[in-house]
Every structure is written in structure tokens, then in C-alpha cells.
Design a protein around this nucleic acid. Structure first.
Lengths: 106, 106
DNA sequence: GGAGAAGTTGCAGTTGTTTGCAATTCGGGT
DNA sequence: ACCCGAATTGCAAACAACTGCAACTTCTCC
């Protein structure tokens, strides 16, 4: 491997570190969706969404294909959903820890 | 919650999306470590490491405490290790998928 | 094959991050 | 109290990422 492994890992997480991209992945957890549908759910211009989808595609996190005139996107592997779930779990723990700290101070 | 949830999630992943920060977290998976030790493992200046540790601290991913003159860092929750593991899993799948694609083309 | 919707690409301006260095703080030992 | 190693902080320069808009490609359907 030419690129050190930890750098590839960082890259993977960095790709998830954007509000629009996270939203896209969450929507795709429920199955493949056409770009058109993502656009109705996320408040962003078509070109902006395309840019972010391209980032996800290049990273191999999602795949796209055409279906009856619409471009569909889907998670490339179910492991992506696992990662999102793990992220949610941490967020919950970190936030509740922080809340308890606030309670102690008030 | 003032900040939309998906933005907090993005923030969480973004924090992990840096080579040095990933390396730190991986080293901390084996238990608390002094800054001094991290410095011997990662090729970076002390001040740079401090900056990255501060990012991790602010995000609540790690905690720090002092032990006999040394500052120690530790993962704030074991869920962080789970997240790293999930990341590794995805990376493996994405990379092997890509390799198989390359084989087909060669 | 022409019109129009669906997506993508390219680019320039702006914004946010990273990095390296100097200065500073904080403790512990003597 | 003083010194020294350990860590952190504050900036400014360099770099990367995001945004918005216009142009362009590609389908599909008639």
C-alpha cells in the first residue's frame, strides 16, 4: 500500500465529516434513492449535492447507477450503516457526559 | 438542541478525519498514554501534537489528566474504539472491492 | 431528432484548517 | 525561590475545502 493506512482511515472519516454528506448517507440507509429524492430532503442546490455525492463516490462509500432516467445512489456496503450507528452511539455518550457535567456545575 | 443533529454527527467524524488524530486514538486504544509517549510514536512537533489533542479534547473524544508530572490522555469512552473498528472494517471492504475491480480490468 | 428534465463539471471567491515557530504556562525537583 | 522539562497557546503563512453560478452532457420521451 503506497498510502499509509492511518492516512487512508483519516481520509475515510474526513469524507463523512460534512453535514450534507452525513444526511445523504442517513437517507441511503433506508435503501437506494434517486438524486431527485435526496434533493427534496436536503436544502441544497443540485450542483452542490452533486459535488458532495462525487466526494462520497470517489471514497467508495456510495455507488451510483441509472434506473429509468433517474440516477440512483446506494451505500456501497452495509458496513457504512454500522459506522453511522457507532457514530450516533458516541455522540450520545459524549453529549450525556457533557450534560451531567453541566448539572454538577449548576 | 440548538445545533441540528446531523451537524453534530458531521463534526464528530470531521474530528477523526486527520492522520495525526487517528494515530493518537489508535495508540490510546491500548490504554491511557502520556503525551511524551505519543510524541515518540508520531513524527510531529510537540506543539502540533498539542493542537490536535486539543481538537480531540474539545470534541469530547479524549480526556486528559495529570499523573506524576506527565499529562496523560485516554479515550473518553470505549465507544470510540468501536468507531475505529467500524472504520477499519469499511476500509477493508472498500479496498478489496476496488482491488477486485482492478483485477477485472487487467 | 428536438425539447426539456436530470445531473454533472469547472471555476473563482470565500471560508475554514493545518502547520511551524516563538512565547508562555505549569509542575516537580533541588 | 529557581530551574528545567513537559505541554499548551497564539499567530501568521500556506493550504485545502466549500459554495454558488454558469456551462455542459446525457437521458428520455414525444
Amino acid at each position: 500500500m503506497s498510502v499509509p493506512l492511518y492516512q487512508a482511515k483519516a481520509e475515510m472519516f474526513r469524507v463523512l465529516g460534512h453535514p450534507v454528506r452525513i444526511r445523504v448517507l442517513e437517507l441511503l440507509q433506508d435503501g437506494p434513492r434517486p438524486v431527485r429524492h435526496l434533493l427534496t430532503e436536503i436544502d441544497i442546490e443540485a450542483s452542490g449535492l452533486s459535488q458532495q455525492l462525487a466526494v462520497l463516490r470517489r471514497a467508495g462509500v456510495v455507488v451510483s447507477f441509472r434506473d429509468k432516467g433517474l440516477v440512483m445512489y446506494a451505500l456501497s456496503t452495509t458496513a457504512v450503516a454500522d459506522l453511522l450507528a457507532a457514530g450516533r452511539r458516541i455522540l450520545r455518550e459524549v453529549l450525556t457526559d457533557r450534560d451531567e457535567l453541566l448539572k454538577l456545575l449548576s
